[in-house]
Amino acid sequence: MLANVRGIDSTTALWYASRATGVVALLLLTAVLLLGILVTRQGRLPGLPRFAVTGLHRNLSLLAVAFVAVHVLTAVTDGYVNIPLTAAVVPLASPYEPLALGLGAVSLDITIAVIATSLLRRHLSRRVWRAVHLLAYASWPVAWLHSITASSDMRHGWMFALAIGTALAVVAAVIWRLAAAARDVPRAERVGLLMSAVHGAHGRERTTRR
């Protein structure tokens, strides 16, 4: 049987499903983070209107949640190793790979908080929403470490290359965003800066005949 040759049968299907959805979830979360980083005044995707960037950011995040849910449920349901359901959200609750799965639980907890506050965004102040939303920057590296530590596949071959690729993309995007933030002028200095800019343009005081 073809499936048997590849090691997939009724006893391992769940296990494989969990690994596959895990990889897809990581890719989706990476895309969501990259799109989120891109949402600034200057940030645009060529050919896409602005609202599409936030729209994609939002819809992909919901898709990622679906994949994470399947990823977690299949891992828990699979009988090959014993992972209790609580381990999905409580760090170190799993007897199997406590550290690796603990990272996954931490990342999932943060992701839940970020998504929940975003769904309730209309009822929150911008400060609260933003403070929680910034945690996404912490959640992604934890999810990445979870992938690398929990799965030996991720540490070899093209899967490893993929993992490194996502990390590089995120680092590059964060650097771009930080550089943009560094160019931000403090509130109190904005007017003065613009003032000298526009006065320089064509404002040299010309003398009038009195």
Partner: peptide, 23 residues
């Protein structure tokens, strides 16, 4: 005060929202 001029609103509701020359 909160508005940074991203401009997404004007794309979605051009009937009621336009952008000024500074966005």
């Amino acid at each position: 005060i909160e508005c940074d001029g991203h401009g997404a609103c004007a794309e979605l509701l051009p009937e009621m929202i336009t952008l000024d020359e500074w966005g």
